[in-house]
Design a binder for these strands. Sequence first.
DNA 1: GTGGTCTAGACCACG
DNA 2: GTGGTCTAGACCACA
Lengths: 129, 129, 129, 129
Amino acid sequence: MDASLLTVQPASAEPIYRQIVAQLRRLIAGGQLAAGDALPSVREVAGFHAINPMTVSRAYGLAEAEGLLERQRGKGMVVASTRKSSQTESRRLALLEPQLLDLARQARELELPAEPVLRRLTKLLGDGT
Amino acid sequence: MDASLLTVQPASAEPIYRQIVAQLRRLIAGGQLAAGDALPSVREVAGFHAINPMTVSRAYGLAEAEGLLERQRGKGMVVASTRKSSQTESRRLALLEPQLLDLARQARELELPAEPVLRRLTKLLGDGT
Amino acid sequence: MDASLLTVQPASAEPIYRQIVAQLRRLIAGGQLAAGDALPSVREVAGFHAINPMTVSRAYGLAEAEGLLERQRGKGMVVASTRKSSQTESRRLALLEPQLLDLARQARELELPAEPVLRRLTKLLGDGT
Amino acid sequence: MDASLLTVQPASAEPIYRQIVAQLRRLIAGGQLAAGDALPSVREVAGFHAINPMTVSRAYGLAEAEGLLERQRGKGMVVASTRKSSQTESRRLALLEPQLLDLARQARELELPAEPVLRRLTKLLGDGT
DNA sequence: GTGGTCTAGACCACG
DNA sequence: GTGGTCTAGACCACA
């Protein structure tokens, strides 16, 4: 895995280190990162995205505490062996539930009917493929 | 409008005052709050949601600066008269664009196909109606 | 609670921030810190022990992620409301198990009989009372 | 002495080379390793525990610097001839003092009375005999 | 080469 | 006043 798998938006309100942890969570749940896969080194990620190594290190540390990653001393971080390579679709969908709930609430506040929202999302989901 | 129209989640990562401003923005754009409508007093909102009055005041202040609200001496805040009662559907949809983009990116990281995501969102959008 | 409740040994091999988290874990389990109790501010602890505020902040952040503490925005940290005020004796004893296992293994390697080890520990446990 | 006398926990927070040195210290102090006894080769230990030979080598080097081991050309490492076969009980007990102090402090933080701690330790010390 | 810890200091967000 | 984030840089520990 190379550093480009991670995306970082320094302008976002969400802190960078949290963005990284959240992405790792999803990439592992989705199977793009499988148990045992090596992660790019702290310095690599930091250099690639022009951020401070400690910020990356902090993200890796939290991911380790959460059981997502394991440290191999002297070598680097790998995806934890206890992680199933990929989770079921319904479990992955559950990870999106909070955002979906929020979106639905906001659409309601905007008095938006379902149809245009769904149409727009369909378009966006297709784009990535 | 009474204080119960606003929803506040003190535990959320999003700061309370920002939650309030964002909701006002949507309720006005959606037409649930029309030009000239009176808003509940700072004290009322704060009491109802058990939050700090200064937090509500800050939200109102920002909404005023944004041109959403107007201060009417002796009467409190009202929805700005310059506000069209309701915006076009496409303008309202545009307010959801950032969240939609984010959702699409996350679905991709989770390797989720479009279909189950759309199905779930359809369900949630229907519930509120 | 004042800053003196926490002990910090900068010379130890265990990192300071980890020492703090471990102590919080025990003080809460033991009931010396009850749900809702306010913690000394980051700056207070840092000043008292002459360490960097960020080190303390890091400890508090981890304790929060672990569910030990809760952040009250603008006010400070308090012991999480979900924490039972005090755990049963056997649960607290379980927290010592790893150290006890280690101690027993080392005594065995030293070919030390049980009696002098227990005598010494009895003395030390009594001292604190 | 064969490689199985050493216990190694690669997952532990304590670095492996330090685990080895500490064990050698205790095994020699306790008399299980007597002056002149040959140690398993670096390669043997590394293979047996599936760890890096350099790690074992480092441990042996430190033990030699500490006067625990001696290098005998062509024969490998042996327990130093200057080592008394076994130290007095009180000297061996002194090696446990730091852990005992730590344990006592932690029991106090957990508000644990002496009795259950001693009872549990008695059990564990007995098991190994 | 890897990650980890700590510091000093700046700046922000929240109440 | 509270905590949070990020940076720059030093130094350590491990393999």
